[in-house]
Simulated scan of single mutants.
Amino acid sequence: MDDYIDAPICNSVMQHTCNCALREEVYRAYITRASTSDLDNAPIINQILKLRLEKAKLLNYNNYAKV
């Protein structure tokens, strides 16, 4: 399976194939597409969450959802 799979491909396979193994392989590839190798965006997400919490605290809120 390719390192990258986009939504149209994933959706088509999920809707039209009867092959359960293929469906699982495509699903797993899709949900982990930005969590490995040079595509790993976890550090960026963590930085965004940190900045959102900082913003909330500066505005006297307990969390970003209250902003």
Rank of each mutant, 00 (worst) to 15 (best):
M1A: 09
D2V: 07
D3H: 06
D3A: 08
D6P: 04
D6L: 05
A7F: 14
P8K: 12
P8R: 02
I9G: 03
C10N: 02
S12W: 13
V13Y: 01
M14P: 02
H16D: 04
H16N: 15
T17D: 11
T17I: 09
T17M: 11
C18D: 13
N19Y: 15
N19T: 12
N19G: 06
N19M: 14
C20M: 11
A21E: 14
L22A: 08
R23I: 02
E24K: 09
E25Q: 15
V26N: 03
V26L: 01
Y27M: 14
Y27T: 02
R28P: 07
I31W: 12
I31M: 12
T32M: 10
T32G: 04
R33D: 00
R33E: 05
A34Q: 07
S37F: 13
S37C: 10
D38V: 04
L39H: 02
L39R: 08
D40M: 07
A42L: 04
P43G: 00
I44R: 02
I44F: 03
I45A: 11
N46A: 06
Q47K: 10
L49I: 10
K50T: 12
K50V: 03
L53Q: 09
K55H: 12
K57L: 05
L58N: 06
L59D: 07
N60F: 10
Y61E: 06
N62R: 09
N62C: 03
N63H: 10
N63A: 08
A65P: 00
K66A: 15
V67A: 02
